[in-house]
Computed example of a mutant assay.
Amino acid sequence: MLRIHFTGEDIRRIVVADRPDPLWDVLLSLHMLQDRAGTLAFGEWRRRTRAADAPSARLLADLARPWGYSPDFLTPGRGDADFDTQLDALLSTPRSRLQADMACLAAEAPLTRWAKALAAGNFGALKQLGEALTAYRRVALEPYQDLIHSQVMADRDRRARTLLSGGTDRLLADLHPSMVWRPPVLEIAVYADQDVHLEGRGLVLVPSFFLRIQPITLMDPSRPPVLVYPLPPRLGWLTPNSNRTAHAPRERVITLLGRTRAAVLEAAAGTGTTTQLAARAGVSLPVISRHTAVLREAGLLVTWREGGMVRHRVTGLGLAVLNGELPA
Rank of each mutant, 00 (worst) to 15 (best):
V287H: 09
A320Q: 10
V26N: 13
L129G: 08
R313I: 07
L23R: 11
V287G: 03
F210A: 10
A125L: 13
G8W: 08
R159Q: 05
A140M: 07
S222F: 01
R48S: 03
L300K: 00
L147P: 02
L33S: 07
D21I: 14
L147W: 00
A189E: 10
D195I: 05
A51I: 06
R156W: 04
G299R: 07
S284E: 04
L203Q: 03
S222L: 11
W67K: 10
G68V: 08
G307W: 04
T292W: 00
A154G: 06
V15N: 09
T162Q: 01
A154T: 10
I4N: 11
T75F: 13
T273M: 01
A279E: 01
E187A: 12
D10V: 03
E266M: 00
F209A: 11
I288T: 06
L231T: 08
P240G: 12
A248Q: 08
T39S: 15
H197Q: 09
A64S: 11
L141R: 15
L59N: 11
N323K: 00
N243T: 13
M153V: 08
S165Y: 00
C104H: 14
R290L: 09
L231S: 01
A154S: 08
G130Y: 05
V226N: 09
H5L: 12
P55W: 13
L238Y: 07
V206I: 12
T239E: 15
E251C: 07
R158F: 10
V228G: 10
A189L: 09
L118Y: 06
G167P: 11
R65E: 10
V226L: 05
G324P: 03
T245G: 15
R138A: 15
V321D: 13
G318Q: 08
A192E: 15
D80S: 12
A106C: 10
R47F: 07
G236P: 02
A119S: 14
D25C: 05
M102Y: 10
E131F: 01
Y144K: 08
L91M: 09
L141D: 14
G308E: 07
M309E: 11
V15F: 14
E297R: 14
A267L: 01
T85L: 14
G272R: 12
T260W: 07
Q276L: 02
T93L: 11
R313P: 03
L231I: 09
G79N: 15
L163P: 00
